[in-house]
Nucleic acid binder design. Structure first.
Ligand SMILES: [Mn+2]
Ligand SMILES: [Mn+2]
Ligand SMILES: [Zn+2]
Ligand SMILES: [Zn+2]
Lengths: 145, 145
DNA sequence: CTCTCACCTTAGACATAATCTAATCTTCGA
DNA sequence: TCGAAGATTAGATTATGTCTAAGGTGAGAG
């Protein structure tokens, strides 16, 4: 990805463009498989150890707070991160826990009356079920379990 | 709640109605504040210590798997549980993490083409923002950072 | 240019959430 | 009645994430 683009995004959000922060952002922009913090930490340090675990978590939190990165909650398991630009929904597999992107479509918002004085920031749609890998094969070996 | 009703639900799902499992289910049916596993463990054991931590977790997992209980993911924090019968959506507060119920309304489903061979079990809407407690007061002291 | 202070990084300790283990208990059903 | 599957238990273990205290870095005031 474009170095200047990332630097710009960070500075626009009031974050210094440090080596470590850049590495996290860059990795996320190149990888859309919704990696966990541990996976990001490992990937960033694969070539040349460069970022501590605490810094990786700190930077991820900074990026989320700045709105540049999205955190996907999968219950129990580790949080997953997503820097994909375009809006989209998520599909989470009941069996393997994989998080996959679904095409975006507009969602009806909750009735104002039911919100009371709550302030809405975002609405998120999560579709659950079995991913392509885990879904039973159509008409071959469905004998599993 | 009706003892027979709970017993029935459990047995219909192929789960034995043990003291410990009953206690978890019963507590959840009576408490709609989306307690965490730790809170459920504590509540169940408040009167007369009766269930280990492992059993509480085991039973919660069993109930979720059976579809009798719903798990609400709030990233980072502990999972929250919900045995409320009627369908509903959730509002999660960015600041305090509270999970609140929102009235149900029908959601548009993803296009079949975009799902491929994935099997959908459920679609879930999560609204995020600030809860009534955490939202800024209308026109009094909004001076808070 | 240089100095300073807010911002950032770090290792490792700590905290919390959840699962695993291995032994024991319970109960369904042949 | 009795065996096996199902359930429970205390405690160890793993997984995930935060905190602490110390030191590094660089943007910008002067
Ligand atoms: Mn995504
Ligand atoms: Mn609920
Ligand atoms: Zn899967
Ligand atoms: Zn709140």
């Amino acid at each position: 990805m474009d170095v200047q683009e990332i630097r710009q995004k960070l500075e626009d959000s009031g974050l210094r463009c440090t080596t470590q922060r850049y590495a996290v952002m860059s990795f996320l922009m190149d990888h859309h498989e919704h990696p966990t913090a541990a996976e990001i930490y490992e990937a960033v340090n694969r070539v040349d150890p460069r970022s501590s675990r605490a810094t990786t978590y700190n930077n991820l939190n900074d990026l989320v707070e700045a709105g540049l990165v999205r955190q996907v909650a999968s219950e129990g398991r580790a949080a997953r991160y997503d820097a994909r630009g375009e809006q989209h929904h998520h599909f989470i597999c009941d069996r393997c826990g994989n998080v996959e992107d679904l095409d975006w479509y507009e969602l009806p918002q909750p009735a104002l009356a039911s919100l009371g004085r709550r302030v809405v920031r975002d609405t998120e749609l999560i579709v659950r079920g079995l991913c392509t890998q885990c879904a039973p094969r159509r008409r071959s070996q469905a004998q599993n379990s």
